[in-house]
Amino acid sequence: MWTKATVICLFLSAIVSVPETVVGQQQMLGTDHLQLIEIRGKQRRDRIDGLTGVARTAPAPALEPLNPPRSTARQPAYDLHPNSGTLTPSGESIEFLGMEELQALIQSSIDASRVSEAQAKWNSIEQKLDSNLQDIRQLSQRIESVSQTPSQSVSSGTVASSISHLAPGIPRPEAQITPTSSPLQSSAVPWLTLTLSAFLVSLFALTLSAYRLGLSRASHLDRPTAPPQHVPTTVPEQYMPESSELRPRRTRGLAWPHEDAKAGATVLPLPVSQQEEIPEPLAPNIDLSTDDSATILSFETFSDQHRDEKKQKQEVNSALMAQILQDNLNLSNKAS
């Protein structure tokens, strides 16, 4: 009963905890993602600020979320390479603002005769940046929506694929954004918990059964037993043959009626099928899914069978001994 209840409780709690963790992971991914977008956007803005004095005149929010999500600083070349990628959220191709472009812009803006031309260029760039910003907002909204739907089975792979769909030139973020290899964040955690608790439960059930069995065994010991024999009936371990084959087998019991053996009649063993039914001693199969009382019951049957088998063996043995003694008494009679 205990076992069942505990197992069910654990199972339920595991069911509840599994999606939670998965969702938490998704949310974490989303937050990280957005934070990174923020950071990268800021870096980009600072860089532009440093490069151009004119950048201040440009609308700051338009520049802010320009960078697509990036996680590591291992690829600094990204910002410096011109036209390093294209964003295609709605099918159209948008070029990134590269270093050379910016320099050309600065040059042209210094040239007073081409101020108006530069202004026009600025406007087009601004438009491009605006559409970029929209795309990125769209993306972040998608990420957010994905992370807020727990029942939907969305993996980090889906988010990653949507990001890579927007920016195929950028490495998939799953390897960089979230340290998925970390054991504490992987989906193995709930299973580990589940396995551990299942193990503890089985340990508890085993202890309980063993304790109860001990009580039942102790009660058997109170019963009167046969008087001890002077000559030990089994060969001590050290006198036994070394090879395991030479040792007597515990499993194969001898099976025939006590009375027949005592009467000295020619007795025949039970058919093979019945002999083989005798269970292997000392190896009870404990099934945790069954009720405890059933387990105890099977233990009792087992120990009863074991005792019967032992008793039967003793009877056979004593019949054999009597026969051998008789043969030898006859022999010594004949000799004298």
Binding site: Q229, V231, P232, V235, Y239, P241, L246, S318
Partner: peptide
């Protein structure tokens, strides 16, 4: 030793 070991086992199993 298979035969001798079996004989010893029998010897010890024989009641006093």
């Amino acid at each position: 030793y298979a035969g001798a070991a079996g004989a010893l086992k029998l010897c010890m199993a024989m009641p006093a």
